[in-house]
């Protein structure tokens, strides 16, 4: 029984050093030297200051900006310290109420738009930090954004096309638009 105790302690200590200290440190060192941008959060810098991350979404509610996915983090949406989804079940009345409220907010901000609302704009993302929306979700918001900024619809559409990322290698994932990048580009149009 006790014969295996010493090898247990010793191999636990040695393997902890290898996998729990050497391995993460070597990976960090390597990443910091060769991939420092992505290893440090893919930050978006504007005028020398970080205004966000390409990968972490931000809350937008002004009609002149494109809105991202609803976020269920608390206490505020897109809280980087409390990632997670709503975990509301598909038949939970609370989910239906939230969806109706989001739908109403979209309709109120753009009363003349009677197109069906893409599902992503009324459903909370899994992480609560989803940085992207589908091209359809961006299309839906074009008239509101163009109107709020006094821009031509065609100009806004062009911007969406520029910021639409296709499926990776043409096959993986879904086509998508980075909301922060799109909004920053919009601000430079003026």
């Amino acid at each position: 029984m006790l014969k295996e105790f010493r090898p247990a302690v010793m191999s636990f200590v040695v393997l902890t050093v290898i996998t729990g200290i050497v391995y993460p440190f070597v990976m960090t060192g390597f990443s910091q030297i060769f991939m420092s941008n992505t290893a440090n959060g893919s930050l978006v810098v504007k005028d020398g200051k970080a205004v966000g991350s390409r990968l972490i979404g931000q809350a937008f509610s002004d009609p002149k900006y494109f809105w991202g996915r609803p976020s269920a983090t608390s206490p505020m949406p897109y809280n980087g310290l409390a990632s997670g989804g709503s975990n509301l079940g598909p038949t939970n009345p609370a989910l239906i109420d939230e969806v109706k409220a989001r739908l109403q907010a979209l309709r109120d901000a753009d009363p003349d738009n009677h197109a069906p609302v893409p599902v992503e704009l009324v459903t909370a993302s899994g992480s609560g930090l989803d940085p992207e929306i589908s091209p359809a979700a961006a299309q839906y918001q074009v008239s509101r954004v163009a109107h709020a900024r006094g821009l031509e619809v065609a100009a806004v559409n062009r911007l969406i096309a520029q910021h639409t990322e296709p499926r990776q290698f043409g096959i993986l994932g879904e086509p998508r638009v980075n909301v922060l990048a799109l909004n920053l580009a919009l601000d430079t149009l003026h």
């Binding site: 599902v119 459903t123 993302s125 899994g126 992207e132 091209p135 879904e174």
Partner: peptide, 23 residues
């Protein structure tokens, strides 16, 4: 409620509650 859940070339559609756009 007038929500578009159909899959198309510009959106995944379906039950997107709790799912990420890129996936």
């Amino acid at each position: 409620l007038g929500i578009d859940q159909a899959a198309s070339s510009t959106q995944a559609g379906g039950n997107m509650e709790g799912k990420e756009t890129r996936f």
